[in-house]
Amino acid sequence: MTHRVFIDGAAGTTGLEIADRLKDRTEFELVRLGDEQRKDSGARREALNECDIAILCLPDDAAREAVELVDPGSRTRIIDASSAHRTVEGWCYGFPELLGQDRIANARRVSNPGCYPTGFLALVAPLVRDGLLPADWPYTVNAVSGYSGGGKALIERFATHCDIAFRAYGLGLNHKHLPEMQQHAGLAHPPVFSPSVIAAMRGMIVDVPLPLEAMDGARSGGALRDALAQFYSEAQLVRVQGSDEPVAELLLHEGAEAWDSLDLWVFASDDGSQARLVARLDNLGKGASGAAVQNLNLMCGLSETAGLHLPKF
């Protein structure tokens, strides 16, 4: 069976990466619009209602508009890669490893997780859910991303002003990812989030420091790692790294190839008083386009990893 897919916002960074993952897939027929048609609401409405699955790679307001263009009773199912519907009732949060593959497979409206929340939630949500970390702790998140996470404007800024090495932002402490992080981790308080950007096209590290000795009910670093390893034991795209070999550093490479998996670490001090939960992923892979294709595969009854860029585990 061939599934008709329309990428609304196909010319953007996320849309281009999704199309690249689908280009050799015979299971899909891409519905394409010309440059002028992409700006025509009538052409977009027709494409949105004639496809089997629409993938929205749009700013939030445009994504909400696209959803309104889908007629009531239409067969069209939606994957929204924007942040418009990540905490909206009636939308399925598109993180199969946390919600379960069946939830995604049977959903009509799927909201793709954000890139930073993907790392944070993969680390924190299972541990809070199982009572190994407290839900009422004021968590902090230190994270760094490749500049492609900011779309064409930030890509152009880094390309034009090549002397920029590091960019801290979100200094108003009201980043749009906060409600998503809090809700889907089941936290009493939004985390303090410190995002930044480096002079690399892709890649992301998300770091959650834990003062274990000050946290009522928190388990040891080893117990946290074992719990994550058990939680993701059957996951095909998430790997919990072992503690058998010391890790001196974690790197992001300027010329890294696309990848769609997610690596997790738990680092603990020798005296057990502190730990750091760390995730490494491609902000355009498992953090965006790869996750959208993973959800698309599940919604179409296909292999979860088909068409994805997977390093050898």
Rank of each mutant, 00 (worst) to 15 (best):
M1L: 10
T2W: 03
V5F: 05
F6L: 02
D8N: 15
A11H: 11
A11F: 12
G12I: 05
T13Y: 04
L16Y: 08
I18W: 01
T26S: 14
T26Q: 12
T26R: 07
L30K: 08
D40I: 10
S41P: 15
G42R: 12
R45D: 06
N49T: 03
D52H: 14
I53T: 07
C57L: 07
A66L: 05
E68T: 15
D71W: 10
P72A: 05
G73M: 04
G73F: 04
E89M: 07
C92K: 04
G94M: 02
L99T: 15
G100Y: 01
D102S: 14
A107S: 06
A107Q: 04
N112E: 02
P113V: 10
F120V: 07
F120H: 02
F120L: 05
L121R: 03
A125H: 09
R129E: 01
D130H: 13
L133K: 11
D136H: 11
W137A: 06
P138D: 01
Y139I: 00
N142P: 07
Y147N: 06
S148W: 06
G151V: 07
K152V: 15
L154W: 03
I155G: 11
I155C: 15
E156H: 13
F158C: 04
T160A: 13
H161C: 11
H161F: 15
F166N: 07
A168I: 13
Y169E: 05
L171N: 13
H175M: 08
P179N: 05
E180K: 09
E180A: 07
M181V: 04
Q183F: 13
Q183P: 12
L187V: 05
A188N: 02
P191Y: 09
V192C: 12
P195W: 01
A199M: 02
M201T: 14
G203D: 00
V206C: 03
L210G: 01
L210H: 00
A214M: 09
M215C: 10
M215G: 01
M215S: 01
R219K: 15
S220H: 08
G222S: 00
L224E: 00
D226V: 09
L237G: 00
Q241A: 12
G242K: 09
D244S: 15
E245Y: 11
V247W: 06
A248R: 12
E249D: 10
E249A: 15
L251F: 13
L251N: 13
L251Y: 09
L252R: 04
L252T: 05
H253L: 12
E254N: 06
G255W: 07
E257V: 12
A258I: 09
S261W: 09
D263Q: 12
A268E: 00
A275C: 01
R276M: 11
R276Y: 10
L277G: 11
L281W: 12
L281G: 07
L281Y: 08
L281S: 05
D282A: 01
L284A: 14
L284G: 11
K286R: 14
A288I: 10
S289M: 05
A291N: 14
A292Y: 02
A292I: 03
A292S: 14
L298G: 06
M299K: 06
L302K: 06
L302Q: 02
E304Y: 08
L308Y: 03
H309S: 15
F313A: 14
F313L: 09
